[in-house]
Computed example of a mutant assay.
Amino acid sequence: MSDGSRNRSDRRSPRRPAAALLLAVATALLPAGTARAADGDGGFTIEDSRITESSGLAASRAHPGVYWTHNDQDGPRLFAVDGRTGKTVATVTLRGVGTPRDMEAVSVGADGDVYVGDIGDNLDGSWDHVWIYRFREPERLADQTVTATQYTVKYADGPRNAEALMVHPKTGRVYIASKNEDGGGLYEGPAKLSAGGVNTFRRIGEVPWVTDGAFSPDGRELVLRSYFSARAYEWKDGRLGTDRPVSAPFQRQSESVTYTLDGSTLLFGSEGSGSRVAAVRVERPGGDAAATGKPSGGAAADSRGTGDDGKGGSLTVGALVLAGIAALWFGARRSRGRRRSG
């Protein structure tokens, strides 16, 4: 089927209602101290009413302080959002690509190009290929239409659902992390993407449930986030190294993560109208702030369970609530799956 013949009716798959209910209940049960920590100073609130499903986030290289985001179930367009005000300063529409199915991730490469991952598959592997769209960051921020290149992507071990696409800031290589309740995989693309054929991504590592990821600007670390947590992996010779927990806010629909351009802060985004992008200072192992870091106002509690409001233990209680509900939900899903296959 040609790209032009794709339509919205065959790509829209409903969000799992159980997952949405889980997240809503878990958020409601979190202690008030955790909510205040997630909405502390730093970060910004997305003001554009058109952005209701912010599924990816990436710091612009050409325009410091500006962040690219997009809806997942939308036409081929991206929004450039000013990190100081939360207001959209440009809407960029892509031509030369088909109708997106499920755009889930965005990353900016060292080459100055923006990479968009149309890689979501809520039916867990129903599509035998997905797409990456690539375009040059505009020199001028204004509403405009740009020509993009479309790449066809397949996985060496078969179709899968994914929400994280990362471009390494030094090598320019593209990576995708798949999403699975029993654990996903990290996939490496070819050294150079080809628009003329299929780009096969091969599994190079095991990762947990992932909703987004980002390389640090120096390329030495990869952060992967999920609905309930985040981890940072040392990046050595193109492979995952030692990992550690990263302080991350609890959000209603935890969807995105990116570094600020200077690498001092991580920004965590969520879906929903008027969603908050929370800022978290980057810390070294052992608790020291990053050498280039500046206090961001502490948008999340630290890993010991003390929020920025000083009330210890609230984050720990919230984490236990979330973990308990998640375990029950995933257990019920597996039980239903066994009954269907029996």
Rank of each mutant, 00 (worst) to 15 (best):
L315W: 15
S314V: 10
A300K: 00
D309T: 13
V317R: 11
G331W: 11
A319Y: 14
L322E: 12
W329E: 05
R333K: 13
S314C: 08
A301W: 03
D302H: 04
G331R: 12
A332M: 08
T316V: 06
G324W: 04
A327M: 07
P295D: 15
L322P: 00
L315T: 14
V317P: 01
S314P: 00
R334G: 02
D309W: 02
K311P: 00
A323M: 03
R304M: 07
R333Q: 14
S303F: 03
D302P: 10
I325G: 04
R304W: 03
R334Q: 10
L315V: 13
G312D: 07
T306R: 13
S314W: 06
I325A: 14
G312W: 05
I325Q: 05
G331F: 08
L328Y: 05
L320G: 04
V317H: 02
R333I: 12
V321T: 07
A319S: 13
R334Y: 01
V317N: 03
W329D: 08
G297F: 01
S303R: 11
S303T: 15
G305P: 14
I325H: 01
A319D: 13
K311R: 13
S303K: 13
K311A: 10
W329F: 13
G297C: 06
V321Y: 05
D308F: 02
S303M: 13
R304S: 15
P295K: 06
A332V: 09
V317C: 07
L322A: 12
S296K: 00
G331A: 15
G313Q: 09
K311Q: 10
L320M: 06
L315K: 12
A319W: 15
G318S: 09
V321W: 04
T306A: 07
T316G: 05
G331L: 10
G307T: 06
A300M: 01
R333L: 12
D308H: 08
I325E: 07
T306W: 02
G318R: 07
G307K: 02
A301P: 05
D302N: 14
I325S: 06
D308G: 14
G318A: 09
T306L: 08
